[in-house]
Design a binder for these strands. Structure first.
Ligand SMILES: [Zn+2]
Length: 311
DNA sequence: ATTTTCAAT
């Protein structure tokens, strides 16, 4: 029985499974697909294509023996991370044995998936999960940043893919024709920039009110609740940051559940800097990303129109 | 130096 990429048609549409002991029947990623989807360029190189989410995982024993590996893409609304969790759960791993799972993912997890991953790893203390993301998914939106923080607070290591991880991914998951990994232009430079951005996100800023020097970091149980768990719709990124300004009524979204406020979903500073809005009463996330321009902290829409860069 | 990103047409 060959369990290959599920889904409609071409490889890369669904999941692939590799079983130890047998021949490697896992459908490998094609080289172009790997470079297109795992590429960490800040913008998609021309000609345009859409960068989707691919998750490649390696399940390892304590002695570094790989027990399982596979690659997932989302299936409609079912994100790759959820399919990955389902897959690991289906393996019925021995709870008294410890495992390590390495994940290479093109986009970092959304808030809902981060929440599910936290629940998953909390229920499975014998698993050590390491996530390497090539790019940060909506990294300027507060709920997405909090999701990444939650991952780390739950003991899940979150890092940005470097040459080492790209190379390992190339060797483990790509139909590489036995050729060595050849990095694309400025791979390390892009990786370093994204890593700096992730560092800023994962660095818990001290609360302006609580200045107790004895408690540098609150335990997870005492941290304020987040909003993304109310509905998966909360983690849906707005099509454009200001799309809600253009839709006359808020419509079904606000009726379905109590959205605290749109300002909670978007970095206030992003809107503030855009000049469209000003005077947020809750300046919890203001001041951030004002400096460090030239990194990923640059404010979208604050400069000239995109696509009109250097010339 | 930098976004349009687990689409929907
Ligand atoms: Zn997700």
């Amino acid at each position: 029985m060959t369990e290959g990429w599920a889904g409609s048609g071409h490889p890369g549409q669904g999941a692939c499974v590799w079983t130890p002991g047998t021949r490697n029947t896992m459908n490998l990623l094609r080289e172009v697909l790997f470079k297109q989807q795992f590429g960490n360029q800040p913008r998609v190189p021309a000609p345009y294509y859409r960068r989707k989410t691919y998750l490649c995982y390696q399940l390892k024993q304590r002695n570094d023996l790989t027990l399982d590996r596979g690659c997932f893409r989302n299936k409609k609304q079912r994100h790759a991370e959820i399919r990955f969790i389902d897959k690991i759960n289906s393996l019925d791993l021995n709870p008294s044995q410890s495992y390590k799972i390495i994940c290479y993912i093109t986009w970092s997890p959304c808030p809902n998936c981060a929440n599910e991953l936290v629940n998953f790893i909390t229920r499975n203390n014998h698993l050590k999960l390491e996530i390497f993301a090539s790019r940060l998914y909506f990294h300027w939106i507060k709920s997405f940043k909090m999701g990444l923080q939650d991952l780390q607070n739950a003991g899940i290591s979150v890092a940005v893919m470097t040459h080492t991880e790209f190379e390992d991914c190339w060797e483990q998951f790509v139909d590489n024709q036995s050729r060595p990994f050849q990095p694309w232009d400025k791979l390390e430079q892009y990786s370093a920039s994204i890593r700096r951005r992730l560092q800023r996100i994962l660095t818990v800023r001290s609360q302006p009110q609580s200045r107790s020097p004895a408690s540098p970091r609150l335990p997870r149980q005492l941290q304020p609740p987040h909003f993304y768990h109310l509905s998966s719709a909360c983690c849906l990124p707005p099509p454009t940051p200001f799309s809600f300004l253009m839709t006359p009524p808020f419509g079904s979204l606000s009726q379905a559940f109590a959205v605290p406020s749109m300002s909670l979903l978007i970095d206030p500073f992003c809107l503030f800097a855009s000049g469209l809005l000003c005077g947020f009463p809750d300046g919890s996330d203001s001041k951030e990303s004002a400096c460090n321009a030239g990194d990923l902290d640059v404010i979208p829409g604050s400069g000239r129109s995109p696509g009109e860069g250097n010339g």
